[in-house]
């Protein structure tokens, strides 16, 4: 199906940059609008910046601003869903699906990107992925957008086979890294953790980890 407009549905400010900056770059080239539905503010995150620029109470506002800056850089719209970080899996799944469905019915995307439930690693990723897929399932079959599910677990290829869609984000890697770096409170923690001996090796390693954006087309069995 032709891509007309895309909704990206992930729970944290920075998931959009790590997971879909390459897809967004290509969409921009083709004038395909993208909207990010961000589930939480990542306000229970552990990274506070190096040196710390945030504390538990200021982190929500800081990450909200980082999300705004990242979406400006990416050239996309975003909406906040207002859930609490780390608590999404405990919400009523049907209510969350209805909430997401009501937004999808307004935006009417041709494609929806979310996490592959069970392969999202973070419980919020799995919860929002499941709720987003449920939201689409609740729609009339002929009105459903195509769902692209992102799997990031260690064993996803073994369990799911090869992905259906592969975006080469390495071609436009600077665009992607600039988006990630808008999330200053989070990105520095990630770079620090790598402890690579040189910048060249670090960039090589980053390209290996983030250079490909892979998705599985979700099949609804009636």
């Amino acid at each position: 199906m032709e891509i007309k407009n895309i909704v990206v549905s992930f729970p944290h400010p920075d998931d959009e940059s790590f997971g879909t900056a390459g897809l967004i770059y290509e969409s921009n080239q083709k004038n395909i609008p993208v909207t990010y539905l961000c589930g939480t503010l990542g306000e229970m995150g552990r990274n506070m910046g190096i040196p710390p620029i945030a504390n538990r109470e200021s982190l929500a506002d800081i990450r909200k601003k980082e999300l705004k800056d990242a979406c400006e850089h990416l050239g996309i719209d975003y909406q906040l869903l207002g859930y609490r970080d780390k608590a999404m899996e405990f919400e009523n799944k049907t209510q969350m699906a209805e909430h997401i469905k009501s937004i999808l019915e307004e935006i009417k995307p041709s494609h929806v990107v979310t996490h592959y439930p069970g392969h999202g690693v973070h419980p919020d990723h799995n919860a929002q992925g499941a709720a987003t897929i449920e939201a689409v399932r609740l729609m009339e079959p002929d009105k459903r957008p195509v769902v692209w599910a992102a799997a990031i677990s260690h064993n996803y290829i073994e369990e799911l086979g090869n992905p259906d869609v592969v975006i080469d984000a390495e071609k436009n890697f600077e665009f992607k890294m600039d988006a990630i770096m808008q999330h200053k409170s989070q990105a520095e923690g990630m770079l620090e953790k790598m402890e690579e001996p040189s910048e060249d090796i670090m960039i090589k390693e980053l390209k290996e980890r983030l250079g490909k954006e892979e998705f599985y087309i979700w099949h609804f069995n009636e």
Partner: peptide, 27 residues
């Protein structure tokens, strides 16, 4: 290891690891 009293008079106490990540908080 660290503390702050916010504008709304909340006492924040926290510990961080070497990479500045929060490990414990009492507020």
């Amino acid at each position: 290891s660290d503390y702050e009293v916010t504008e709304s008079n909340q006492l924040l106490l926290a510990g961080h690891d070497q990479a500045g990540r929060l490990t414990v908080a009492l507020q």
